[in-house]
Design a protein around this nucleic acid. Sequence first.
DNA 1: GCACTTCATGTTTTT
DNA 2: CATGAAGTGC
Length: 808
Amino acid sequence: MTHSDDPDAHAHIPLSARAMAARPAPYLDGLNPAQRKAVETLDGPVLMLAGAGTGKTRALTARIAHLLGTGRARPNEILAVTFTNKAAREMKTRVAQFLGEAVEGVPWMGTFHSIGVKLLRRHAELIGLKQGFTILDTDDQIRLMKQLIVAENIDEKRWPARMLAGIIDNWKNRAWRPETVPASESDAFNARGVALYAAYQARLKTLNACDFGDLLLHCVTIFQQHPDVLEKYQRWFRYILVDEYQDTNVAQYLWLRLLAAGHRNICCVGDDDQSIYGWRGAEVGNILRFERDFPGAEVIRLEQNYRSTPHILAAAGAVIATNRDRLGKELWTEAEEGEKVRLIGHWDGEEEARWVGEEIEALQSGTRGLDRVGLDQIAILVRAGHQMRAFEDRFLTIGMPYRVIGGPRFYERMEIRDAMAYFRLAVSPADDLAFERIVNTPRRGLGDKAQQTIQRTARDAGVPLTEGARRALQAGALGGRGAKELARLLDAIDRWHGWASGPQTPPGDDLIETFEAPQGLNHIEMAERILDESGYTAMWQADKTPEAPGRLDNLRELVKALEEFDNLQGFLEHVALIMDNDSEDATEKVTLMTLHGAKGLEFPVVFLPGWEDGLFPSQRSMDESGVKGLEEERRLAYVGITRAEVLCTISFAANRRVYGQWQSQLPSRFVDELPPAHVEVLTAPGLYGGGVGRAVAPGGGDLSAAASGLEGRAMRADVYASPGWRRMQARTARPVVGTARESAHMVINATALPAFDAGERVFHQKFGYGRVSEVEGDKVFVDFEKAGPRHIVARFLVPAESADDVPF
DNA sequence: GCACTTCATGTTTTT
DNA sequence: CATGAAGTGC
């Protein structure tokens, strides 16, 4: 405890912490040297480069404990920022474990956004908002944007609201305000885009609202324009910790840099190799640049891995080593060697799913050499959501319990948002976006025309929509069923607002007064009555579609969720920021999710299906972002492999149905990057002549020979029995030498990767015969006889004369 | 205002 | 193919 000698430090040591410092610090126990250094280097900038499974959360929480234990900081002088609520929660629990009841006060731990809101609520007036501003979700944003598009006379066909909202979001990610969007952003749309951005911000101001981007950008603006405020927080937050630094965008980066500018006590934890959110504004550059941004920074690498076997780490390491833009890190472990990473090719996506299902059954019964593996320990990680369907279909038919993670989140479901809109109106009847959402839900006979009348009345008078609606009614501008229903709705909103503004009784507090006071409805009863009186519950009860019961369930669950809050306002605030839902249920299930969703998780057994070029790496990533995109995809592969603790199985299919059309697929280029010595090829010999990477594994032995030893163990009889398999075998009489991708391609198309010349006659499965008019790398321009001119990826073409050889 | 049609479109996702 | 959004007809 060298630091307790620091005279300065004593002033800050709370009694309890001093007691803690007196005995050996429990939080330092069992840390490896790198972790220990990361925990004990308290002053100045520190970059903790923490590879997958290297115990970074451990180090991070120990560091917080150490800051407190040495008396460096009082709890509220520490700011710890994460990206997700889940991460924040985990950090809170783990820090609490270290501290016990010993220390009073809690560090500022939360997401960028939640901390941003806290700061903004205090200084809202500095950016022209009132303290009680509301936070818009993506839905609201788009609805607002739609209105602006109409107002600005923009062609919504060419510029959909979604897209424009996305552009503005991007600008905010980069910390550009309307007046600071650089001219270099010169899309055809730029001039109007900036104007639209300004109009959008103006609209938010009148609504007294913020979108998610604003929560950060407004903070940055305040820091930049009000040095006194910034200084206050610089003094306040004496130590800053940041998790998942590789995921920060420019706005977050500025936010941090401004706050840390004085003392530079900032510790960023991250892994450049796990940066997979570039497409939503994350800048790997932030972490790559750290030492330049914070000169004198201590860079500490956490490379000892506590999660995976050496084979798994070697496979992941070899794949990621192909990336050029990285700080460099190599994971190692003391773990037992274990199984090699397994690689298998399939005929098509359905077969892949069937095989995985059978493997899981085998693992469950313990016939895979491992001890019986529980379903909870197994995950299937896919690149794109649509890949899940094949697995779901298969699991449904064989009765394999599974859970899909990452579908539409609870709070994003329509019924939940509708209900929330009602609650929002109860709290603030001036919430125009909420009003718009539910005026005609359930149907009240208020269609476009009526709603336009309301909008116009409100706009002309400069009042909120509820008030505008009231005036339109009084003016007799509305008639029929709509008018009557609207009057009822407005009355109801008034009544609800009365409840919501009345004294609130905490839940569980069943004193008699609760029932006596007419306003003493607690917020739970309030919520129930709002949903009943609005006719919303009835609407779903009357609905006979199959999903209606589920929606009613969700509404019940929503009301139940209210129990954790004291009032509706608190609940709404929470929900705006916390969009997660982990509905745990006890039954053991296989986990099915995307690679993105899997970051930060680990499973003993991991299946990585769909390793095919175009799917993974995704064609779109490569088209849109070139090498950068490819490298991000590769990091995704790295994330995928490193989720596995003991058994990792990679697979690909030769054929896959894409948008209803069958396409032949090439194994992913990432398959080529797998190190043969650490991979076991399960694909039967013949199907896959060349093996992985090179034909002969450095460790000795031909991979295809190794694969042949697996007959009956890894390959199931019915794989051989499938028509596809027999067909493939027939096609592969001669052994093929070359990389995995090439050989698979040869199997499938019975021809080498063809290069085409202009003028050549070619055949395409879908478009038929045509003539090549232009060649651009692997893309070819073809005039088809039937389908006309088209851009085609060369690998879907065959020279016309060999078209008869194509097996399907 | 609503039900039915056609048409385009088709990663990854948090806050 | 399959879903959602926009357009058409009642």
